[in-house]
Simulated assay, not measured.
Amino acid sequence: MYIAIATLSVKEENREAYKQAAEFMADWSMKHGALEVMEAWEANVPAGKTTDMRKAVAAPADEKIVTGWVIWPDKETLDRAKEAMGKGEGFEGYPEGDPPFDGSRLIFGEFEPVLTRGR
């Protein structure tokens, strides 16, 4: 199992546009071998004294924190998907216009599990 995680911030007024883009990307990821996709909208993101999720993405007060992950069977499957993404494969039908978030403040990482429990 291999996990790709992203955190960003989105203006509340762009929530529906973000959801549409996220639905497209979730479907795209599943078609490219993902096992699970999760997108989560801020419900309670407390301010920290030193650092916090808002500071991590330089979120202005009028934006909500959004985080999500894609679980892949392995790094190789994700690498193939990233290669396809780089070529623009399968992006016909992606929502038109500017993205509903500032991609320059998105943070992304890839992780190998050290512990799993539950489903």
Rank of each mutant, 00 (worst) to 15 (best):
M1P: 13
Y2P: 03
Y2K: 08
Y2N: 13
I3V: 15
I3C: 09
A4F: 02
A4R: 07
A4S: 14
I5Y: 05
I5S: 09
A6P: 00
L8W: 01
L8I: 11
V10T: 09
K11V: 06
E12M: 01
N14E: 13
N14A: 06
E16V: 09
E16K: 03
K19N: 13
Q20Y: 05
A21M: 07
F24W: 08
M25I: 08
W28G: 04
S29V: 05
S29T: 13
M30R: 08
M30K: 13
K31F: 09
K31S: 14
A34K: 02
A34C: 12
A34D: 08
L35T: 08
E39M: 09
A40S: 15
E42R: 00
E42S: 04
A43I: 07
N44S: 13
V45T: 15
A47F: 13
A47Y: 07
G48E: 05
G48N: 08
K49R: 09
T50F: 11
T50N: 07
D52S: 06
D52R: 02
M53N: 04
M53S: 09
M53E: 11
K55F: 02
A56W: 01
A56P: 01
V57R: 03
V57C: 06
A58I: 06
A59F: 03
P60H: 09
A61G: 07
D62C: 03
E63D: 12
E63Q: 14
E63C: 10
K64F: 10
K64H: 09
I65V: 14
I65G: 03
V66E: 04
V66W: 01
V66G: 02
T67W: 11
G68D: 11
G68K: 09
I71G: 02
I71V: 15
W72P: 05
W72D: 10
D74H: 04
K75F: 14
K75T: 10
L78P: 01
L78V: 04
L78R: 10
D79L: 12
D79E: 15
D79A: 11
K82N: 12
E83I: 00
E83M: 06
E83N: 04
G86L: 08
G86M: 08
G86A: 08
K87V: 06
E89R: 00
E89V: 13
E89W: 00
E89S: 08
E92M: 04
E92S: 08
E92A: 09
G93W: 01
G93V: 04
P95Q: 03
G97L: 01
P100W: 03
D102H: 08
G103D: 09
S104C: 02
S104Y: 02
R105G: 06
R105H: 12
I107Q: 10
F108T: 12
F108R: 11
F108C: 05
F108P: 01
G109R: 11
F111L: 14
F111Y: 15
E112L: 08
P113F: 13
P113H: 06
P113E: 14
V114W: 11
T116D: 05
G118V: 13
G118T: 15
G118F: 09
R119T: 14
